[in-house]
Every structure is written in C-alpha cells, then in structure tokens.
Amino acid sequence: MEVKSESRNYSVMSEIGTGAYGTVYKARDCESGKVVALKKVRLHTGEEGIPMSTLREIGLLKHLGQLEPQNIVRLLDVCYGGISGNNEMNLTLVFEYIDMDLSTYLDRCPSPGLEPSKIKELAHQLVSGVDFLHSHRIIHRDLKPQNILVNCDGHLKLADFGLARVYGFQMALTSVVVTLWYRAPEVLLQSQYATPVDLWSVGCIFAELFRRKPLFCGTSDVDQLYKIFDVIGLPLEEDWPEVSLPWSSFRPSPPRPLKLYVSDICPQGLDLLQRLLCFTPADRLTATQALAHGYFRDDTASPSSASSEASSSSQSSAEGDSQGSNPELVCR
C-alpha cells in the first residue's frame, strides 16, 4: 500500500493499531527513508465533513509545530486521497515515528521497576509538555499512558490530540472527557473544569511510573470517585462543588498516606504527588508550579542531594553521574 501526498510518498510497513476513527500504520518516507507513523482517517462524503477530533488534532499540532516543542509529537504532513467509487476519501496524518507508548514502556520494564532518576526524567518531560500546551491555550483532556509516547532513549512526547481543545480567557468547560482512570474528580462530578484536569492526570501517571500499574482503577464514574476518596479522603462538604451528585452519597473517609500506594517514592516526590492529587482544582499545582517543585530541583542542583533521599540512595549512586549533575539532560 502506498500513500501519496503532493510532495512525498510513503510506503506502509506494518499496522500499529486501530483507533476510534482510523488506523495507524508504521511507514517509510520513500524519499528520506525516515520511519513515520501514518494515521488514516476515512471521510465519507455523506457525513459531517471532517470529524471534529481530526480537525482539532491537526489544527492544534499545526499551531504548536511551528514552535518546535520538545515534548509534543510532531505532525509532519497531511495527505489527501481523492474521492473513490464508494464516496469515501482518505485523510492521512503523517507523524514522526516514536518507538512505543508509556504503557508498553512500563510493561516492558523489568522488576523492580524504573530507576528513580529515570522516573524523574520522564515526569519532568511529561509536566514540561503539559506546561507547553497550557501556555498555548490548549488543554489536552485525555492524558493517559497510551497517549504518551516514549523513544528508546527515554525521550517523552505527548500525542493524540483528538480530544484537546483551545480555551478562552473567560470560558469554563463542561462535558465529559478523559479515560476514566485518569479523570479528575471535577470531571467525574460533571462540574466545570479547565487546565487543572490535565494536572490530575499527570498525578495519576506520575504514581503509575513508580507502581507500573494504574493508581485508581474505577469501573464507573461513581466507582472511580469511591476509589479516589478511599485514598485522598472525602473532601470537606464546603469544598464540594454544585453538582447533582450530593456530598452525602459518599461515606466519610479520612485520607490515607499516599506512601502506602506508591511505596518507592522519595519525600519530595510524595509531596509533589500530593499537590497534584488535590480534590479542589484551584489548589492543584499548575504545570509551571510543578516544574518549579523541589522534586525536580534538588538532584539537578547538586548531584549529592539525590543520594540523601533514603529510598533512592542505592540507585542514585549508580545513576548519579549520568543524570544528577546536568539539569539540561532532564528535559532534552
């Protein structure tokens, strides 16, 4: 199979996966020999034009791509296929190819899991990517390990902008998005939400980097809330937003130490996690604040401070030289 655009040809190598609105292939740019990922979207001329998710994904990535962001997947090209006999046409999005998603990356990681320095490096890139989006008026809204891509060398990039959208200065958003397990409480409660939803997802994913399994695995919206409150505790009644689900429908539960769920985490990391998994969106750290958190600063400022973290001392001494001393390394 070949896909042609005005400028380039791509030859398909293998299928990577099928999503809600198309299939993703691994392919080669016939001219440069570079490996790319093709996302094929089928358009039916009898339907509603270009699907909203495709329009947003291309529009946002075109907007961001000019700025060459470090931690956002690069959209290289958009190709059109003409209308065929069955009134269908193809739109192909050409992305840079990245080895795997974070979910696969964690699955493949042998016991006892990722080294603390590696986790820090991934978390920093994740927060940097989110910070970049937010400062360009974009909320991702569907952050999860399956939408985060990682190269063999550990370079992390956010992908899948089908649910992302731009936001205005005097605009709050409603309606439900984001895969259940990474959904913020305000989304589950169908309250209004904004950029903090992405930081909740970041918190869940940060915990997952240590655990190598999800933190809150609910089976429904309400069950997801139960699971969350089991850990962070039921919020105070006065902090409950005006939503249809009453505060009284949840049984009171005190917060439990997060350390019980994320045992390998260092004190600074634990503090960061706690500040991300805040029930009240306004109390949650913003991406910029998270980047300035001590967790990201301490071992980059001086190589020795990393080893002061009791839980990570053994690994960091082995890893210290390559990661600890150079702050640039973390976000490259």
Partner: peptide, 9 residues
C-alpha cells in the same frame, strides 16, 4: 470565572 486569573500561565 477566574480559575486562571492567579495562574502564571
């Protein structure tokens, strides 16, 4: 309404 007003973004 001002969820972002204090934010550094």
């Amino acid at each position: 309404a001002h969820w972002w007003a204090n934010a550094d973004i």
